[in-house]
Design a protein around this nucleic acid. Structure first.
Length: 573
RNA sequence: CGGGAUGUGGCGCAGUUGGUAGCGCACCUCGCUUGGGACGAGGGGGCCGCUGGUUCGAGUCCAGUCAUCCCGACCA
């Protein structure tokens, strides 16, 4: 490809509204252009990269027996009502105003609806279906360029099995394919166990790329053996010891004391673990006539309750109580709530660290009062203990062998064992060997295409621009003619370009006239093609050309006759 | 959805007490230059987000509205 013919609108200055590096650089290098918030046009150079990513994905999906589909973005409301997800998704789903249609945010429903018509026997399974297609999600706050957009490209795959062992095997195939895909895309990634969230299902894992631009918080052990999304992470922490003094509990006045910090200050103590932090959650009734249920959670004062863990215990619809509800439910406002003397029917759940703990301090369910010497074993009937706390930096893994680190990362892929949630809801059944109906057992597997590009840039850039690595570089080599006014040099470059093309070297030729050398160097560094062949008067008159590695900045002056060998060495490495 | 900010040529920005809109980059022409985003001269391009109000007069003041960005909430 000749750069004079390729439309690459590079720009010198960062766009004013960009914050993260990949956003700034992808705009400056002419990969994408914003159309409206969260919606990007892909420009020619960006499309070359995107196509390379998709090619890798297709190869790896096909290698595990994947069948490529292309499903519509439009789908009927009716189908989404069968699984109840039209309501579950809420505002995230784009709705068409003048038809009963939505723009699909994901495709479990549509793929399952196909399977229910065509997969009728265990003999037809396993099946592995996938597509690379545009998804629409009405994000309330798009950000960071293509990292979080309202329209994006996703590879989504779905497995259909007749047995649970079959699902395990399909899931494992996808997991291995994902590792290959992200490795080939040049990403430094890791896998974490994750919450299944509204997707449902039994097991899920996320493929993560560590980055400050990320929105997910993950926990990784120093030895690399444990990694988990913070939402579901577990750790080893000492519990609160039982003192056994059997002191009677006692209410005391704590004027205007609301937070644990204020309470610790008031009591003049630094160890907050015995200050039991209370929070109230609501489990909304499933029917109009039903009654909401209430939950009081207790964690140590130096811990935070983990809402995702609560949701997996009590259902995804669980939500924190609104401030105005708390007085009705407990008799006090936030900051004065506790397990003793709570009115009404409130279930009490305490974190495992508080198992049978005594001499605790907590709210008195009366504003401006707390109670001390609470003994959970003695004073709180019907209390249950569960792991409901959020892991913190520096804690140990459960087996106490390694320290945990908490860091931000970007989710580039997510795989789920869905089980039968969708097949049951949509009636996708098959006949087993025994002649009986069974729901198809499903998995779903997603990759964000633009996120691969953006995270690659996050991990591979410097102050001069992008430095692509691996297979997704738009070109492997850029041939730069910096002395276009010399006929001899231009003829040499033209010939070299043809030779490289003939040898199937993926080359971009900067043949642009009337540009000074500095301009071309800056453009080449910004676009970030891995290898630069620089041909200019200075070296050419000695029969030499310059060779530069973008990532390291390493330059070498080599004889024209040695170029071929040099390229072979690098491109076949 | 809550909080904060910003809308002025393609991009980045300035615009004072209200008095007919400017700079840098980019673009066009000519000259000169050619190894790290040159230089000189000349030139083209703007409903100052939109609507209404105050005023003799609004980019500037007021009200509303729309859009965009940041922080938070939410997020298969």
């Amino acid at each position: 490809m000749k750069l004079s013919k390729l439309f690459v609108p590079t720009q010198k200055e960062d766009p004013a509204d960009a914050v993260v590096a990949s956003h700034k650089l992808s705009i400056r290098a002419g990969l994408f252009r914003l159309l409206t918030s969260g919606v990007y046009s892909v420009l020619p150079l960006g499309l070359i990269i995107k196509n390379k990513v998709e090619k890798i994905i297709r190869e790896e999906m096909n290698a595990i027996g994947g069948n490529e589909f292309l499903l519509p973005a439009l789908s009927p409301n009716e189908l989404w009502n069968e699984t109840g997800r039209l309501e579950d998704f809420g505002d995230i789903i784009f709705r068409i105003k003048n038809r009963e249609l939505v723009l699909a945010p994901t495709h479990e429903e549509v793929f399952t609806s196909i399977s229910r018509n065509y997969i009728t026997s265990y003999k037809q399974m396993p099946q592995m279906w996938y597509q690379i297609q545009t998804k629409f999600r009405n994000e309330s706050r798009p950000k960071s360029g293509v990292l979080r957009g309202r329209q994006f490209t996703m590879k989504d795959a779905y497995s259909f099995d007749s047995t649970w062992e079959g699902l395990d095997a399909s899931y494992e195939l996808q997991e291995k394919a994902y590792r290959k895909i992200f490795t080939r895309c040049g990403l430094n990634f890791f896998v974490v166990s994750a919450s299944s969230g509204a997707m449902g299902g039994t097991k899920s894992e996320e493929f993560m790329v560590e980055s400050d631009a990320g929105e997910d918080i993950v926990v990784i052990s120093e030895d690399g053996k444990y990694s988990s999304n913070l939402e579901v992470a577990v750790s080893y922490v000492d519990g609160v010891s039982r003192k056994g003094t059997n002191l009677a509990y006692e209410e005391f006045h704590t004027p205007a004391i609301k937070s644990i910090e204020e309470l610790a200050g008031f009591l003049n103590i630094t160890d907050k673990s015995r200050l039991a932090k209370s929070r109230v959650f609501v489990i909304p009734a499933k029917t109009e006539e039903g009654k909401d249920k209430y939950l009081l959670t207790l964690v140590c004062g130096d811990d935070e309750v983990n809402e995702t863990k609560l949701q997996s215990l009590f259902g995804a619809s669980l939500r924190p109580g609104h401030p105005e509800e708390l007085m009705d439910i407990t008799g006090a406002d936030a900051g004065s709530i506790g397990p003793i003397g709570i009115k009404g029917n409130v279930k009490i759940i305490a974190d495992l660290r508080l198992q049978d703990a005594d001499e605790l301090v907590s709210g008195a369910n009366k504003n401006d009062y707390h109670i001390k010497n609470i003994d959970l074993k003695r004073d709180v009937q019907g209390i249950k203990y569960c792991d409901i706390r959020t892991v913190k930096e520096g804690e140990l893994t459960l087996d106490k062998t390694s320290k945990l680190r908490v860091t931000k990362s970007i989710e580039v892929g997510h795989i789920f064992k869905l089980g039968t949630k969708y097949s049951v809801a949509l009636g996708a059944k098959f006949l087993g060997k025994d002649g009986k109906d069974n729901p198809i057992i499903m998995g779903s597997y997603g990759i964000g295409i633009e996120r691969i590009i953006a995270t690659h840039i996050e991990q591979n850039h410097d102050s001069n621009g992008i430095a692509w690595s691996g297979e997704i570089a738009p070109f492997k080599v850029i041939l730069i003619n910096i002395t276009t006014q010399s006929k001899e040099i231009t003829e040499y470059c033209d010939t070299l370009y043809k030779e490289l093309m003939d040898k199937n070297v993926d080359v971009l030729y900067d043949d642009r006239d009337d540009l000074r050398p500095g301009f071309k160097f800056k453009d080449a560094d910004l676009i970030g093609i891995p290898y630069q062949i620089i041909v200019g008067e200075k070296n050419f008159k000695n029969g030499d050309i310059e060779f530069k590695v973008r990532k390291t900045g390493e330059r070498s002056i080599i004889s024209k006759s040695d170029l071929s060998a040099k390229l072979n060495e690098l491109l076949n490495a």
